[in-house]
Design a protein around this nucleic acid. Structure first.
Length: 560
RNA sequence: UGGCCUAUGGUGUAAUUGGUAACACAGCUGAUUUUGGUUCAGUCGUUCAAGGUUCGAGUCCUUGUAGGCCAACCA
Protein backbone atom coordinates (compact mmCIF):
# COMPACT_ATOMS: atom_id res chain seq x y z
CA UNK A 1 0.00 0.00 0.00
CA UNK A 2 1.35 3.36 -0.97
CA UNK A 3 2.06 5.57 1.98
CA UNK A 4 -0.28 8.49 1.99
CA UNK A 5 1.57 11.78 1.87
CA UNK A 6 0.35 13.74 4.85
CA UNK A 7 -0.21 17.37 4.07
CA UNK A 8 0.76 19.81 6.77
CA UNK A 9 -1.16 22.79 8.05
CA UNK A 10 0.62 26.13 8.35
CA UNK A 11 1.44 25.59 12.03
CA UNK A 12 3.11 22.29 11.25
CA UNK A 13 5.06 23.99 8.48
CA UNK A 14 6.33 26.52 11.01
CA UNK A 15 7.37 23.77 13.41
CA UNK A 16 9.05 21.81 10.63
CA UNK A 17 10.97 24.88 9.63
CA UNK A 18 12.04 25.52 13.22
CA UNK A 19 13.24 21.93 13.42
CA UNK A 20 15.19 22.31 10.17
CA UNK A 21 16.76 25.45 11.58
CA UNK A 22 18.12 23.50 14.51
CA UNK A 23 15.38 23.70 17.14
CA UNK A 24 15.62 20.58 19.30
CA UNK A 25 12.58 18.38 18.87
CA UNK A 26 12.83 17.42 22.53
CA UNK A 27 12.17 21.04 23.45
CA UNK A 28 8.83 21.11 21.68
CA UNK A 29 6.06 21.83 24.16
CA UNK A 30 2.49 23.04 23.77
CA UNK A 31 -0.37 24.20 25.91
CA UNK A 32 -4.12 24.62 25.88
CA UNK A 33 -4.92 27.77 27.89
CA UNK A 34 -8.65 28.18 28.63
CA UNK A 35 -10.01 30.90 30.87
CA UNK A 36 -12.26 29.19 33.42
CA UNK A 37 -15.18 31.53 32.89
CA UNK A 38 -17.47 29.33 30.82
CA UNK A 39 -17.85 25.98 29.19
CA UNK A 40 -15.80 24.70 26.29
CA UNK A 41 -17.42 24.60 22.86
CA UNK A 42 -16.76 23.05 19.48
CA UNK A 43 -14.39 25.89 18.61
CA UNK A 44 -12.28 25.04 21.64
CA UNK A 45 -12.39 21.41 20.58
CA UNK A 46 -10.60 22.46 17.44
CA UNK A 47 -7.91 24.21 19.45
CA UNK A 48 -7.63 21.28 21.85
CA UNK A 49 -7.22 18.87 18.95
CA UNK A 50 -4.64 21.17 17.39
CA UNK A 51 -2.47 21.48 20.48
CA UNK A 52 -2.83 17.95 21.80
CA UNK A 53 -2.62 16.61 18.27
CA UNK A 54 0.72 18.36 17.85
CA UNK A 55 1.82 16.83 21.14
CA UNK A 56 0.99 13.37 19.89
CA UNK A 57 2.54 14.00 16.49
CA UNK A 58 5.85 15.23 17.89
CA UNK A 59 5.77 13.22 21.09
CA UNK A 60 5.82 16.47 23.02
CA UNK A 61 4.15 17.35 26.33
CA UNK A 62 1.03 19.51 26.35
CA UNK A 63 0.03 21.46 29.42
CA UNK A 64 -3.49 22.34 30.43
CA UNK A 65 -3.20 25.87 31.73
CA UNK A 66 -6.00 27.84 33.25
CA UNK A 67 -5.69 31.51 32.45
CA UNK A 68 -7.18 32.61 35.73
CA UNK A 69 -6.18 36.23 36.14
CA UNK A 70 -9.63 37.73 36.53
CA UNK A 71 -11.36 36.61 39.74
CA UNK A 72 -14.42 38.67 38.81
CA UNK A 73 -15.40 36.13 36.17
CA UNK A 74 -13.74 32.88 36.97
CA UNK A 75 -14.94 29.96 39.05
CA UNK A 76 -13.89 26.50 40.14
CA UNK A 77 -17.05 25.06 38.53
CA UNK A 78 -15.64 25.92 35.12
CA UNK A 79 -12.22 24.48 35.92
CA UNK A 80 -13.82 21.15 36.73
CA UNK A 81 -16.02 21.18 33.62
CA UNK A 82 -13.09 22.03 31.37
CA UNK A 83 -10.95 19.21 32.76
CA UNK A 84 -13.80 16.78 32.24
CA UNK A 85 -14.31 17.90 28.66
CA UNK A 86 -10.65 17.68 27.68
CA UNK A 87 -10.37 14.20 29.18
CA UNK A 88 -13.60 13.10 27.57
CA UNK A 89 -12.25 14.15 24.20
CA UNK A 90 -9.52 11.65 24.89
CA UNK A 91 -6.49 13.79 25.64
CA UNK A 92 -4.02 13.65 28.50
CA UNK A 93 -2.23 16.76 29.61
CA UNK A 94 1.27 16.73 30.98
CA UNK A 95 0.94 19.34 33.74
CA UNK A 96 -2.15 20.99 35.11
CA UNK A 97 -1.12 24.61 35.42
CA UNK A 98 -2.67 27.84 36.57
CA UNK A 99 -1.54 31.33 35.71
CA UNK A 100 -2.32 32.10 39.34
CA UNK A 101 0.57 29.84 40.33
CA UNK A 102 2.86 32.41 38.77
CA UNK A 103 1.51 35.48 40.54
CA UNK A 104 4.60 35.84 42.75
CA UNK A 105 7.04 35.41 39.88
CA UNK A 106 5.04 37.87 37.80
CA UNK A 107 5.11 40.33 40.67
CA UNK A 108 8.86 39.98 41.07
CA UNK A 109 9.38 40.54 37.37
CA UNK A 110 7.11 43.59 37.51
CA UNK A 111 9.28 45.05 40.27
CA UNK A 112 12.29 44.38 38.07
CA UNK A 113 10.65 46.25 35.19
CA UNK A 114 9.98 49.22 37.46
CA UNK A 115 13.60 49.20 38.55
CA UNK A 116 14.65 49.17 34.91
CA UNK A 117 12.43 52.15 34.18
CA UNK A 118 10.18 50.03 31.98
CA UNK A 119 7.03 50.31 34.08
CA UNK A 120 5.27 52.95 36.14
CA UNK A 121 2.27 53.43 38.35
CA UNK A 122 -0.48 55.51 36.80
CA UNK A 123 -3.02 57.12 39.12
CA UNK A 124 -5.58 58.35 36.64
CA UNK A 125 -9.06 57.07 36.04
CA UNK A 126 -9.60 54.59 33.23
CA UNK A 127 -11.52 57.30 31.36
CA UNK A 128 -8.55 59.65 31.50
CA UNK A 129 -6.23 56.97 30.27
CA UNK A 130 -8.58 56.01 27.48
CA UNK A 131 -8.68 59.62 26.33
CA UNK A 132 -4.88 59.71 26.19
CA UNK A 133 -4.71 56.47 24.29
CA UNK A 134 -5.49 58.12 20.93
CA UNK A 135 -7.12 56.17 18.12
CA UNK A 136 -5.80 53.75 15.52
CA UNK A 137 -5.13 56.73 13.26
CA UNK A 138 -4.07 59.24 15.93
CA UNK A 139 -1.17 58.85 18.33
CA UNK A 140 -1.68 58.90 22.07
CA UNK A 141 -0.30 61.32 24.63
CA UNK A 142 1.85 60.60 27.66
CA UNK A 143 0.32 60.18 31.07
CA UNK A 144 1.27 62.90 33.56
CA UNK A 145 2.52 60.08 35.80
CA UNK A 146 4.72 58.55 33.13
CA UNK A 147 7.92 59.95 34.57
CA UNK A 148 7.50 59.18 38.23
CA UNK A 149 10.74 58.20 39.90
CA UNK A 150 11.67 54.56 40.28
CA UNK A 151 11.48 54.95 44.07
CA UNK A 152 7.98 56.39 43.96
CA UNK A 153 6.82 53.70 41.56
CA UNK A 154 8.28 50.95 43.73
CA UNK A 155 6.65 52.39 46.83
CA UNK A 156 3.26 52.81 45.17
CA UNK A 157 3.32 49.37 43.61
CA UNK A 158 4.14 47.74 46.91
CA UNK A 159 1.33 49.61 48.60
CA UNK A 160 -1.01 48.55 45.79
CA UNK A 161 -0.08 44.99 46.58
CA UNK A 162 -0.57 45.52 50.32
CA UNK A 163 -4.12 46.65 49.75
CA UNK A 164 -3.70 50.29 50.76
CA UNK A 165 -5.67 51.55 47.77
CA UNK A 166 -9.16 51.15 46.47
CA UNK A 167 -9.97 49.12 43.40
CA UNK A 168 -9.36 51.17 40.30
CA UNK A 169 -7.31 53.91 41.95
CA UNK A 170 -3.94 52.93 40.47
CA UNK A 171 -2.57 50.65 37.80
CA UNK A 172 0.88 49.53 36.81
CA UNK A 173 1.68 50.29 33.19
CA UNK A 174 4.50 49.22 30.92
CA UNK A 175 6.41 52.21 29.56
CA UNK A 176 6.62 51.54 25.84
CA UNK A 177 5.46 53.97 23.16
CA UNK A 178 2.37 56.15 23.13
CA UNK A 179 2.93 56.82 19.42
CA UNK A 180 2.98 53.23 18.29
CA UNK A 181 0.69 52.32 15.40
CA UNK A 182 -0.18 49.33 17.53
CA UNK A 183 -2.62 50.47 20.20
CA UNK A 184 -1.49 47.67 22.47
CA UNK A 185 1.99 49.14 22.69
CA UNK A 186 0.69 52.44 24.03
CA UNK A 187 1.73 51.82 27.63
CA UNK A 188 -0.51 48.81 28.32
CA UNK A 189 -1.82 48.11 31.79
CA UNK A 190 0.03 45.28 33.52
CA UNK A 191 -1.75 45.23 36.88
CA UNK A 192 -5.03 46.45 38.24
CA UNK A 193 -6.28 46.56 41.83
CA UNK A 194 -9.20 44.21 42.38
CA UNK A 195 -10.39 43.57 45.92
CA UNK A 196 -11.93 40.29 45.05
CA UNK A 197 -11.05 36.85 46.26
CA UNK A 198 -9.72 34.40 43.75
CA UNK A 199 -10.92 30.80 43.41
CA UNK A 200 -7.41 29.53 44.06
CA UNK A 201 -5.37 32.25 45.76
CA UNK A 202 -8.18 33.45 47.98
CA UNK A 203 -7.37 36.89 49.41
CA UNK A 204 -3.61 36.62 49.06
CA UNK A 205 -3.64 39.12 46.23
CA UNK A 206 -5.60 42.25 45.56
CA UNK A 207 -3.65 43.18 42.45
CA UNK A 208 -4.11 40.97 39.43
CA UNK A 209 -1.98 40.82 36.27
CA UNK A 210 -3.52 41.48 32.88
CA UNK A 211 -3.66 38.91 30.08
CA UNK A 212 -0.80 40.29 28.01
CA UNK A 213 1.59 40.48 30.91
CA UNK A 214 0.59 37.04 32.12
CA UNK A 215 0.27 34.90 29.05
CA UNK A 216 3.67 35.14 27.44
CA UNK A 217 5.49 34.98 30.76
CA UNK A 218 3.48 31.88 31.70
CA UNK A 219 4.45 30.31 28.40
CA UNK A 220 8.04 31.18 29.22
CA UNK A 221 7.87 29.73 32.73
CA UNK A 222 6.46 26.50 31.33
CA UNK A 223 8.94 26.61 28.44
CA UNK A 224 6.22 26.36 25.82
CA UNK A 225 7.85 26.37 22.39
CA UNK A 226 4.82 27.24 20.30
CA UNK A 227 1.99 29.24 21.79
CA UNK A 228 -1.03 29.03 19.52
CA UNK A 229 -3.97 31.34 19.77
CA UNK A 230 -6.72 32.81 17.64
CA UNK A 231 -6.34 35.58 15.10
CA UNK A 232 -7.65 38.40 17.24
CA UNK A 233 -4.43 38.13 19.25
CA UNK A 234 -2.25 38.80 16.24
CA UNK A 235 -1.71 42.41 17.28
CA UNK A 236 -0.78 41.22 20.75
CA UNK A 237 2.23 39.40 19.39
CA UNK A 238 4.38 42.50 19.36
CA UNK A 239 3.59 43.09 23.04
CA UNK A 240 3.97 39.39 23.85
CA UNK A 241 7.49 39.58 22.47
CA UNK A 242 8.29 42.87 24.18
CA UNK A 243 7.34 41.45 27.57
CA UNK A 244 9.32 38.29 26.91
CA UNK A 245 12.35 40.32 25.91
CA UNK A 246 12.42 41.94 29.35
CA UNK A 247 12.95 38.69 31.24
CA UNK A 248 14.32 36.30 28.64
CA UNK A 249 17.43 34.30 29.43
CA UNK A 250 19.13 33.08 26.24
CA UNK A 251 19.70 29.61 27.66
CA UNK A 252 15.94 29.11 27.77
CA UNK A 253 13.34 28.45 25.12
CA UNK A 254 11.71 31.64 23.93
CA UNK A 255 8.07 30.85 23.19
CA UNK A 256 6.71 31.75 19.80
CA UNK A 257 3.13 32.94 19.44
CA UNK A 258 1.31 32.12 16.22
CA UNK A 259 -2.31 32.77 15.38
CA UNK A 260 -4.95 30.76 13.57
CA UNK A 261 -8.53 31.52 12.59
CA UNK A 262 -11.22 30.35 14.98
CA UNK A 263 -13.60 27.84 13.45
CA UNK A 264 -17.17 28.93 12.91
CA UNK A 265 -19.98 26.43 12.61
CA UNK A 266 -23.11 27.10 10.62
CA UNK A 267 -26.53 27.28 12.25
CA UNK A 268 -25.09 28.02 15.68
CA UNK A 269 -22.96 30.53 17.54
CA UNK A 270 -19.48 29.85 18.82
CA UNK A 271 -18.75 32.54 21.34
CA UNK A 272 -18.82 32.18 25.10
CA UNK A 273 -20.65 35.45 25.47
CA UNK A 274 -23.44 34.45 23.12
CA UNK A 275 -23.70 30.96 24.56
CA UNK A 276 -24.00 32.53 27.98
CA UNK A 277 -26.93 34.58 26.72
CA UNK A 278 -28.68 31.46 25.46
CA UNK A 279 -28.34 30.02 28.95
CA UNK A 280 -29.25 33.17 30.87
CA UNK A 281 -32.24 33.98 28.69
CA UNK A 282 -33.41 30.39 29.03
CA UNK A 283 -33.47 29.72 25.31
CA UNK A 284 -31.86 26.43 26.28
CA UNK A 285 -31.95 24.52 29.55
CA UNK A 286 -28.27 24.94 30.38
CA UNK A 287 -24.71 24.73 29.14
CA UNK A 288 -25.19 21.04 28.42
CA UNK A 289 -28.49 21.37 26.58
CA UNK A 290 -28.14 18.97 23.64
CA UNK A 291 -28.74 21.85 21.22
CA UNK A 292 -25.71 23.73 22.50
CA UNK A 293 -22.45 23.51 20.53
CA UNK A 294 -20.63 23.06 23.83
CA UNK A 295 -18.61 19.92 24.39
CA UNK A 296 -20.98 19.01 27.20
CA UNK A 297 -23.99 19.66 24.98
CA UNK A 298 -22.60 17.56 22.17
CA UNK A 299 -21.80 14.80 24.66
CA UNK A 300 -25.36 14.80 25.96
CA UNK A 301 -26.64 14.93 22.39
CA UNK A 302 -24.84 11.65 21.73
CA UNK A 303 -21.77 12.76 19.81
CA UNK A 304 -18.73 10.59 20.34
CA UNK A 305 -15.25 11.97 21.13
CA UNK A 306 -13.99 10.17 18.04
CA UNK A 307 -16.45 11.97 15.81
CA UNK A 308 -15.49 15.36 17.21
CA UNK A 309 -11.79 14.63 16.79
CA UNK A 310 -12.39 13.47 13.25
CA UNK A 311 -14.33 16.64 12.56
CA UNK A 312 -11.54 18.84 13.91
CA UNK A 313 -9.04 16.94 11.85
CA UNK A 314 -11.11 17.20 8.68
CA UNK A 315 -11.76 20.94 8.87
CA UNK A 316 -8.08 21.61 9.50
CA UNK A 317 -6.57 24.86 10.58
CA UNK A 318 -5.75 28.00 8.63
CA UNK A 319 -5.84 31.77 8.82
CA UNK A 320 -8.84 32.72 6.76
CA UNK A 321 -12.35 33.36 7.88
CA UNK A 322 -14.60 30.38 7.59
CA UNK A 323 -18.06 29.06 8.15
CA UNK A 324 -18.08 25.31 8.32
CA UNK A 325 -21.31 23.65 7.37
CA UNK A 326 -22.81 21.76 10.28
CA UNK A 327 -23.58 18.92 7.86
CA UNK A 328 -19.91 17.99 8.04
CA UNK A 329 -20.14 17.58 11.81
CA UNK A 330 -23.26 15.49 11.31
CA UNK A 331 -21.46 13.38 8.75
CA UNK A 332 -18.67 12.69 11.24
CA UNK A 333 -21.23 11.62 13.83
CA UNK A 334 -22.96 9.22 11.44
CA UNK A 335 -19.70 7.83 10.18
CA UNK A 336 -18.61 6.83 13.66
CA UNK A 337 -22.02 5.82 15.01
CA UNK A 338 -22.72 3.67 11.96
CA UNK A 339 -19.85 1.43 12.97
CA UNK A 340 -20.59 1.29 16.67
CA UNK A 341 -24.26 1.92 17.46
CA UNK A 342 -26.48 -1.16 17.95
CA UNK A 343 -29.56 -1.18 15.71
CA UNK A 344 -32.88 -1.24 17.50
CA UNK A 345 -36.48 -0.58 16.59
CA UNK A 346 -38.55 2.32 17.90
CA UNK A 347 -41.68 3.95 16.55
CA UNK A 348 -41.96 7.69 17.09
CA UNK A 349 -45.35 8.36 15.53
CA UNK A 350 -47.35 5.16 15.96
CA UNK A 351 -50.01 3.76 13.65
CA UNK A 352 -51.72 0.56 14.72
CA UNK A 353 -51.52 -2.49 12.50
CA UNK A 354 -53.70 -5.54 13.06
CA UNK A 355 -52.74 -8.75 11.30
CA UNK A 356 -56.14 -10.31 10.85
CA UNK A 357 -54.95 -13.80 10.01
CA UNK A 358 -52.45 -14.00 12.87
CA UNK A 359 -53.54 -16.02 15.93
CA UNK A 360 -55.09 -14.00 18.76
CA UNK A 361 -52.91 -13.85 21.87
CA UNK A 362 -49.87 -15.47 20.29
CA UNK A 363 -46.35 -14.18 20.94
CA UNK A 364 -43.45 -15.44 18.92
CA UNK A 365 -39.86 -14.33 18.79
CA UNK A 366 -37.97 -13.19 15.73
CA UNK A 367 -34.23 -12.84 15.42
CA UNK A 368 -32.65 -9.45 14.78
CA UNK A 369 -29.10 -8.46 13.94
CA UNK A 370 -27.57 -6.11 16.50
CA UNK A 371 -25.39 -4.40 13.97
CA UNK A 372 -24.68 -5.52 10.41
CA UNK A 373 -21.37 -3.61 10.58
CA UNK A 374 -20.02 -5.82 13.34
CA UNK A 375 -17.19 -8.10 12.42
CA UNK A 376 -18.89 -11.02 14.16
CA UNK A 377 -22.55 -10.24 13.95
CA UNK A 378 -24.55 -10.86 17.12
CA UNK A 379 -28.29 -11.28 17.44
CA UNK A 380 -31.16 -10.72 19.82
CA UNK A 381 -34.75 -11.95 20.02
CA UNK A 382 -37.71 -9.65 19.53
CA UNK A 383 -41.37 -10.34 20.39
CA UNK A 384 -43.89 -10.31 17.55
CA UNK A 385 -47.66 -10.43 17.81
CA UNK A 386 -50.97 -9.73 16.09
CA UNK A 387 -51.00 -6.02 16.91
CA UNK A 388 -48.11 -3.79 16.00
CA UNK A 389 -47.15 -0.18 15.64
CA UNK A 390 -45.52 1.12 12.53
CA UNK A 391 -44.59 4.69 11.68
CA UNK A 392 -47.60 6.70 10.57
CA UNK A 393 -45.72 8.10 7.60
CA UNK A 394 -44.99 4.57 6.41
CA UNK A 395 -48.60 4.04 5.34
CA UNK A 396 -50.68 5.69 2.65
CA UNK A 397 -54.01 4.54 1.29
CA UNK A 398 -52.83 5.39 -2.19
CA UNK A 399 -49.40 6.24 -3.48
CA UNK A 400 -47.34 6.15 -6.63
CA UNK A 401 -44.67 3.62 -7.53
CA UNK A 402 -41.92 5.61 -5.84
CA UNK A 403 -43.50 5.05 -2.45
CA UNK A 404 -41.80 1.86 -1.29
CA UNK A 405 -43.87 1.60 1.85
CA UNK A 406 -47.24 0.23 2.83
CA UNK A 407 -50.32 1.11 0.80
CA UNK A 408 -53.70 -0.55 0.41
CA UNK A 409 -53.31 -3.74 -1.58
CA UNK A 410 -49.54 -3.44 -1.34
CA UNK A 411 -46.98 -5.60 0.37
CA UNK A 412 -44.10 -4.71 2.62
CA UNK A 413 -41.57 -6.59 4.73
CA UNK A 414 -41.65 -6.07 8.47
CA UNK A 415 -37.97 -5.98 9.35
CA UNK A 416 -36.79 -9.32 10.73
CA UNK A 417 -40.35 -10.73 10.53
CA UNK A 418 -43.05 -11.31 7.93
CA UNK A 419 -44.30 -9.88 4.68
CA UNK A 420 -47.67 -8.24 5.19
CA UNK A 421 -50.31 -6.88 2.87
CA UNK A 422 -52.60 -3.95 3.72
CA UNK A 423 -56.25 -4.89 3.22
CA UNK A 424 -58.32 -2.03 4.64
CA UNK A 425 -58.30 0.90 7.01
CA UNK A 426 -60.40 1.87 9.99
CA UNK A 427 -61.01 5.61 10.38
CA UNK A 428 -62.70 7.82 12.91
CA UNK A 429 -65.38 10.38 12.09
CA UNK A 430 -62.74 12.96 11.06
CA UNK A 431 -61.17 10.58 8.61
CA UNK A 432 -58.07 9.99 10.72
CA UNK A 433 -56.73 6.51 10.24
CA UNK A 434 -56.98 4.53 13.48
CA UNK A 435 -55.90 1.10 12.31
CA UNK A 436 -54.72 -0.65 9.23
CA UNK A 437 -55.85 -4.23 8.85
CA UNK A 438 -53.35 -6.48 7.14
CA UNK A 439 -52.80 -10.11 6.37
CA UNK A 440 -49.44 -11.83 6.64
CA UNK A 441 -47.76 -14.62 4.75
CA UNK A 442 -46.98 -17.22 7.36
CA UNK A 443 -44.23 -18.75 5.23
CA UNK A 444 -42.36 -15.49 4.69
CA UNK A 445 -40.67 -15.28 8.09
CA UNK A 446 -37.19 -13.78 7.89
CA UNK A 447 -34.41 -16.30 8.02
CA UNK A 448 -36.70 -19.28 7.73
CA UNK A 449 -35.14 -20.21 4.41
CA UNK A 450 -38.43 -20.81 2.62
CA UNK A 451 -38.88 -19.54 -0.94
CA UNK A 452 -41.54 -17.19 0.45
CA UNK A 453 -39.04 -15.73 2.90
CA UNK A 454 -36.65 -14.98 0.02
CA UNK A 455 -39.22 -13.02 -1.94
CA UNK A 456 -38.18 -9.52 -2.76
CA UNK A 457 -40.62 -6.85 -1.71
CA UNK A 458 -39.79 -3.25 -2.28
CA UNK A 459 -40.08 -1.84 1.20
CA UNK A 460 -38.99 -2.85 4.67
CA UNK A 461 -40.53 -1.23 7.73
CA UNK A 462 -39.54 -1.07 11.36
CA UNK A 463 -42.17 -1.90 13.95
CA UNK A 464 -42.81 -2.76 17.59
CA UNK A 465 -45.25 -5.26 19.08
CA UNK A 466 -47.95 -3.34 20.93
CA UNK A 467 -48.33 -5.68 23.93
CA UNK A 468 -44.58 -5.78 24.45
CA UNK A 469 -43.39 -2.29 23.52
CA UNK A 470 -42.45 0.25 26.19
CA UNK A 471 -43.25 3.91 26.13
CA UNK A 472 -40.37 6.33 25.94
CA UNK A 473 -39.88 10.08 25.85
CA UNK A 474 -38.00 10.95 22.71
CA UNK A 475 -36.46 14.40 22.48
CA UNK A 476 -36.09 15.24 18.85
CA UNK A 477 -33.55 17.99 18.33
CA UNK A 478 -32.99 20.13 15.32
CA UNK A 479 -30.69 23.05 14.55
CA UNK A 480 -30.89 25.82 17.12
CA UNK A 481 -30.93 28.55 14.49
CA UNK A 482 -32.71 28.89 11.18
CA UNK A 483 -29.90 30.98 9.70
CA UNK A 484 -26.51 29.64 8.68
CA UNK A 485 -24.83 32.59 10.34
CA UNK A 486 -27.22 33.91 13.00
CA UNK A 487 -24.70 36.43 14.29
CA UNK A 488 -23.74 37.63 10.84
CA UNK A 489 -26.30 40.42 10.69
CA UNK A 490 -25.21 43.84 11.83
CA UNK A 491 -28.73 45.11 12.33
CA UNK A 492 -30.27 42.03 13.90
CA UNK A 493 -29.73 40.20 17.13
CA UNK A 494 -28.81 36.55 16.71
CA UNK A 495 -31.66 35.51 19.01
CA UNK A 496 -34.10 36.57 16.29
CA UNK A 497 -33.10 33.50 14.35
CA UNK A 498 -33.84 30.88 16.96
CA UNK A 499 -35.48 27.86 15.37
CA UNK A 500 -38.84 27.45 17.13
CA UNK A 501 -38.76 23.74 16.32
CA UNK A 502 -35.29 23.04 17.70
CA UNK A 503 -36.85 20.65 20.20
CA UNK A 504 -39.97 18.54 19.97
CA UNK A 505 -40.77 15.97 22.58
CA UNK A 506 -42.66 12.94 21.41
CA UNK A 507 -43.96 9.86 23.17
CA UNK A 508 -42.78 6.89 21.23
CA UNK A 509 -42.62 3.14 21.63
CA UNK A 510 -39.39 1.21 21.94
CA UNK A 511 -38.56 -2.45 21.83
CA UNK A 512 -38.75 -3.85 25.38
CA UNK A 513 -35.06 -4.52 26.01
CA UNK A 514 -34.22 -0.86 25.59
CA UNK A 515 -35.47 0.17 29.04
CA UNK A 516 -32.32 -1.41 30.46
CA UNK A 517 -30.01 0.95 28.55
CA UNK A 518 -27.81 3.16 30.69
CA UNK A 519 -27.43 6.94 30.35
CA UNK A 520 -25.07 7.78 27.54
CA UNK A 521 -25.66 4.58 25.58
CA UNK A 522 -26.07 5.17 21.88
CA UNK A 523 -28.33 3.37 19.42
CA UNK A 524 -29.52 3.55 15.89
CA UNK A 525 -33.29 3.55 15.73
CA UNK A 526 -33.55 1.79 12.43
CA UNK A 527 -34.65 3.91 9.50
CA UNK A 528 -34.81 7.00 11.76
CA UNK A 529 -31.49 8.05 13.19
CA UNK A 530 -29.06 7.86 16.06
CA UNK A 531 -30.29 8.31 19.60
CA UNK A 532 -28.71 8.31 23.00
CA UNK A 533 -30.01 7.75 26.51
CA UNK A 534 -30.32 11.04 28.40
CA UNK A 535 -29.14 11.38 32.02
CA UNK A 536 -32.81 12.13 32.90
CA UNK A 537 -33.72 8.61 31.82
CA UNK A 538 -34.88 5.84 34.14
CA UNK A 539 -36.12 2.33 33.63
CA UNK A 540 -39.65 3.52 34.35
CA UNK A 541 -39.41 6.62 32.18
CA UNK A 542 -36.83 6.10 29.46
CA UNK A 543 -35.62 9.26 27.74
CA UNK A 544 -33.76 9.37 24.46
CA UNK A 545 -32.08 12.26 22.68
CA UNK A 546 -31.86 12.36 18.93
CA UNK A 547 -28.24 12.84 17.97
CA UNK A 548 -28.69 13.06 14.21
CA UNK A 549 -30.99 11.55 11.63
CA UNK A 550 -29.95 8.95 9.11
CA UNK A 551 -29.23 10.27 5.66
CA UNK A 552 -32.66 10.50 4.14
CA UNK A 553 -32.78 10.22 0.38
CA UNK A 554 -36.50 9.56 0.50
CA UNK A 555 -37.07 13.00 1.98
CA UNK A 556 -35.37 14.48 -1.07
CA UNK A 557 -37.48 12.44 -3.48
CA UNK A 558 -40.65 13.28 -1.56
CA UNK A 559 -39.86 16.99 -1.83
CA UNK A 560 -39.90 16.85 -5.60
C1' U B 1 -6.15 59.46 7.93
C1' G B 2 -2.84 54.53 10.21
C1' G B 3 -1.29 49.41 11.34
C1' C B 4 -1.79 44.02 11.08
C1' C B 5 -4.00 39.69 8.73
C1' U B 6 -6.56 37.04 4.75
C1' A B 7 -8.27 35.84 -0.39
C1' U B 8 -8.10 28.32 -4.10
C1' G B 9 -15.10 24.52 -6.48
C1' G B 10 -21.43 25.74 -2.89
C1' U B 11 -18.41 24.67 2.13
C1' G B 12 -13.71 23.45 4.58
C1' U B 13 -8.70 22.28 3.64
C1' A B 14 -4.33 20.71 0.57
C1' A B 15 -0.71 21.26 -3.51
C1' U B 16 6.42 17.60 -2.68
C1' U B 17 7.96 25.37 -1.65
C1' G B 18 8.18 27.77 -9.29
C1' G B 19 6.56 22.02 -12.58
C1' U B 20 -0.37 17.97 -14.57
C1' A B 21 -4.85 22.15 -8.98
C1' A B 22 -6.41 17.59 -5.30
C1' C B 23 -9.02 15.42 -0.70
C1' A B 24 -13.44 15.56 2.31
C1' C B 25 -18.45 17.40 2.88
C1' A B 26 -22.68 19.01 0.16
C1' G B 27 -25.19 18.20 -4.82
C1' C B 28 -26.43 15.00 -8.95
C1' U B 29 -26.52 9.62 -11.74
C1' G B 30 -26.51 4.57 -11.27
C1' A B 31 -25.56 -0.46 -8.82
C1' U B 32 -26.18 -3.38 -4.32
C1' U B 33 -29.29 -3.73 0.00
C1' U B 34 -34.66 -7.43 4.72
C1' U B 35 -32.65 0.12 7.23
C1' G B 36 -34.95 4.90 0.93
C1' G B 37 -29.13 3.40 6.09
C1' U B 38 -24.32 1.30 4.84
C1' U B 39 -21.19 0.05 0.72
C1' C B 40 -19.61 0.64 -4.41
C1' A B 41 -19.12 3.15 -9.19
C1' G B 42 -19.60 7.60 -11.76
C1' U B 43 -20.49 12.97 -12.22
C1' C B 44 -20.74 18.43 -11.58
C1' G B 45 -17.60 22.34 -10.23
C1' U B 46 -11.92 25.87 -8.25
C1' U B 47 -6.78 29.63 -7.90
C1' C B 48 -10.19 37.86 -6.20
C1' A B 49 -8.65 41.45 -10.48
C1' A B 50 -5.07 43.66 -13.75
C1' G B 51 -0.16 43.92 -15.00
C1' G B 52 5.00 41.92 -14.52
C1' U B 53 9.29 38.15 -13.89
C1' U B 54 9.87 33.07 -16.01
C1' C B 55 10.33 27.89 -20.77
C1' G B 56 6.65 27.45 -16.85
C1' A B 57 3.01 31.20 -11.51
C1' G B 58 -2.27 29.17 -6.95
C1' U B 59 2.87 29.92 -5.28
C1' C B 60 7.49 35.36 -6.62
C1' C B 61 6.98 41.12 -7.68
C1' U B 62 3.72 45.64 -8.46
C1' U B 63 -0.92 47.99 -8.24
C1' G B 64 -5.79 47.46 -7.11
C1' U B 65 -10.38 45.24 -4.98
C1' A B 66 -12.97 42.73 -1.10
C1' G B 67 -13.31 40.93 3.85
C1' G B 68 -11.60 40.54 9.03
C1' C B 69 -9.00 42.54 13.35
C1' C B 70 -6.91 46.82 16.48
C1' A B 71 -8.80 52.53 20.90
C1' A B 72 -11.59 46.86 28.13
C1' C B 73 -8.35 48.29 34.88
C1' C B 74 -11.65 41.17 29.64
C1' A B 75 -9.19 36.89 27.84
Amino acid sequence: MAEEVKSLNFIEHIIEEDLRNGFDQNSLRFRFPPEPNGYLHIGHASSICLNFGLGLEYNAPVNLRFDDTNPAKEEQEFVDAIKKDVSWLGFEWDKECYASDYFQQLYDWAVYLIQSGKAYVDSQTSEEMAAQKGTPTRPGTDSPYRNRSVEENLDLFERMKKGEFESGSHVLRAKIDMNSSNMLMRDPVMYRILHKSHHRTGDTWCIYPMYDWTHGESDYIEQISHSLCTLEFAMHRELYEWFLEQVYDTSQVKPKQREFARRNLSHTVVSKRKLLRLVQEKVVTGWDDPRMPTISGLRRRGYTPESIRKFADTIGIAKRENLIDVSLLEFCAREDLNKTAPRVMAVLDPLKIVITNYPEGKTEYVTAENNPEEENVTYRELPFSKELYIEREDFKEEANRKFFRLKLGGEVRLKNAYIIKAENVIKDADGTILEVHCTYDELSKSGSGTPESMRKVKGTLHWVSIPHAKKAEIRVYDRLFTEAEPDGHEDKDFLEFINPDSLSIVEGYIEPGLVEAAAGERFQFQRIGYFCVDPDSSKENPVFNKTVGLRDSWAKIAEK
